[in-house]
């Protein structure tokens, strides 16, 4: 399992691995928003938590179609499916690798981008906490979507169509927590619900992902 994690991380970091693409995309989305809604700090600070959450979500989505498609094309998935490692575990590891290379950098970059959007002072802590709690769910749910579309040619767009509705609860609770934090209100209810979703998806989604991947490899 550690070998698989190490391999995925190595691949992401080497040339052509796409590490940093999500981060760059996140930055660009954040920079474009003021061009769209105007530079007034008052407007920006109201929408900042939501924009940062949506930016992080889209950046996560962007890298999903590489999550399994490359391993499918070069036969790695066939071989993993016949390996002693259960497919559920392999997919959990791949989701973890995706989070470490995409989700975690987004969490760390979010406060910096918060400055660009005049995020109010108390919001920084809760933005980071909500993203840290929520992005693992995005990776795990995304792995399910990637497994669903693995054998499909040009599955990238379909993947977005399938995964985005599944992201709704995570986005709602995550952005709500960040928004309440920024307004100086108590975000704990949203955070607890968000943590609940994340824990439940981490526990259950790998089974669904492995089931659909086995069907897709057949």
């Amino acid at each position: 399992m550690i070998a698989l994690l190490r391999r995925d991380l190595t691949l992401a970091l080497r040339a052509g691995g796409g590490f940093g693409l999500g981060l760059a995309f996140f930055l660009i989305v954040t920079v474009l928003v003021p061009f769209g809604v105007g530079p007034q700090a008052a407007t920006l600070s109201v929408i900042a938590p939501g924009i940062l959450w949506i930016g992080a979500l889209l950046a996560c989505l962007l890298s999903l179609d590489r999550l399994l498609a490359l391993d499918y094309e070069d036969g790695t998935l066939d071989l993993l499916a016949t390996a002693p490692l259960p497919l559920e575990a392999a997919l959990s590891i791949k989701a973890l690798a995706h989070w470490l290379t995409t989700g975690l950098p987004l969490v760390l970059a979010a406060p910096v981008l918060g400055i660009l959007l005049s995020l109010p002072g108390p919001g920084y802590l809760w933005l980071v906490v909500s993203l840290a709690l929520g992005t693992p769910a995005l990776s795990v749910i995304g792995t399910f979507g990637a497994a669903l579309t693995v054998g499909i040619k040009r599955g990238g767009l379909l993947l977005s169509l399938l995964v985005l509705p599944l992201y709704v609860p995570t986005l709602i609770f995550g952005a709500e927590a960040a928004r309440r934090g920024a307004l100086g209100q108590d975000p704990s209810t949203s955070l607890l619900l968000l943590a609940g979703i994340t824990l439940a998806t981490i526990a259950l989604m790998p089974f669904a992902s492995a089931a659909v991947l086995r069907m897709g490899l057949r």
């Binding site: 391999r7 691949l11 052509g16 790695t76 993993l80 390996a83 002693p84």
Partner: peptide, 20 residues
């Protein structure tokens, strides 16, 4: 398809499958 990664060396590819 051999499950090989272009960006990994020969040793790294083999070591990965060995440890799996």
């Amino acid at each position: 398809a051999d499950g090989l990664k272009a960006m990994l060396s020969v040793t790294e590819n083999l070591t990965f499958w060995a440890s799996v």
